[in-house]
Design a protein around this nucleic acid. Structure first.
Lengths: 201, 201
DNA sequence: AGGTCAACCAAGCAAGCGCTAGTGTAAACC
DNA sequence: GGTTTACACTAGCGCTTGCTTGGTTGACCT
């Protein structure tokens, strides 16, 4: 039982587990199903992970880590105006749905299945991500780009964005870029957006 | 096995089941746990429900039915202006979280555990509720109260509202009335809201 | 050639699962 | 007064669950 390392094999197994967790839900996914999907027997699975819980934690950690990386990179390379930063964050958020959708769905839906230790560890990661959002929203509020109660606005925005995993179709006509623009347009008053694309196909 | 009737006993059992499903999740909630919570033995449970699935369906049906009733009543007694109707819907939505929170959390999180027949039946109920929302949003769009793509706006709004089950505290300082006002204020441009309460405690 | 080690397997244990069968009982009905 | 009905019980069947145990394999190092 090596358990803790970050072998490439383990990463691949984590990716497969995320897919199954989304299809079936964590509780309905048996270790036998996981092993089968990975092309090994159920006993061998416990060579890579201490227990089923650890697989769940690995899936969520991977996804959140990636989201954090992508968001930071997006903020690093965009303009410094509040509107550009807001847009960059929204777009980055939606782009992770393209690349790491399974992991994010698991993080949103199966969070409560984590045991207390794992939840504690991972909530720090998630808090770091949400802190990025609140920073950007604060800037937009200060600049008068959007208006309202700080706490409520960030909750509403996070809700609108996180809800996208339930309906957004990456194969569909809308790009993350377009979705992000539309969300920002909805939040900001029309006069501050000279190039509003209010009707799109 | 009477199974299908709508006895008051069954309603009470459904309410208790909703609570357990929220605490533990549907899959982790055993029929023995349900029976214990209801003060009976596990065998007796199947006198009231055909199987575990039917309990889940009953919980979700009850919650959605109530939401629909409350929303319709709210629309029936408010002003006919688009803004008033938008506000009434948002407030009604948040008020059901006070009265039927458990059922709604179950509906949002355990929907996929329903078998195909139940899902088909209940999706009609849910569609009826969402149709109310889209109607009200359409009116607001036509009146120029909010702006943007019809499909996206309604998804974003539903997301912001449904996400409230994850953070809204009925014991906290904010009333559903205040939350609804703040959401509408965020969506509509500030010039169209003469009495804007942008900073509240 | 001998040793190390990650990766895998076969077999199975103890516990728990949803659900059924058959029975008891008190109130309601004809 | 006999029958029906609603509701509860006991006992347990057949199956699946997460996880353990003890052992094998083959690539790599010295």
């Amino acid at each position: 039982m090596n358990v803790v390392n970050e072998s490439p094999r383990r990463k691949e197994l984590t990716r497969l587990a995320a897919q199954l967790f989304v299809q079936e839900g964590f509780d309905r996914t048996t270790v036998r199903m996981l092993a089968h999907e990975m092309g090994i027997k159920s006993g061998s699975l416990f060579h890579h992970f201490r227990d089923k819980q650890e697989i769940l934690a690995a899936v969520i950690e991977e996804g959140t880590q990636n989201a954090l990386t992508i968001a930071r990179r997006a903020l690093g390379r965009c303009d410094t105006t509040p509107e550009a930063r807001l847009h960059a964050m929204a777009r980055a958020h939606l782009e992770t749905l393209l690349t790491d959708r399974n992991a994010h769905v698991v993080a949103l839906y199966e969070w409560r299945r984590l045991d207390p230790e794992a939840r504690d560890h991972l909530s720090h990661l998630r808090d770091a991500y949400e802190a990025l959002w609140e920073e950007v929203i604060d800037e937009a509020l200060d600049a008068g780009l959007i208006h309202g109660d700080r706490f409520l606005v960030s909750r509403f925005v996070m809700g609108a964005l996180n809800w996208t995993v339930r309906w957004y179709d990456p194969e569909g006509p809308r790009t993350p870029e377009e979705l992000a623009r539309e969300l920002i347009a909805m939040l900001t008053s029309p006069v501050t957006l000279p190039s509003s694309a209010s009707t799109m196909v």
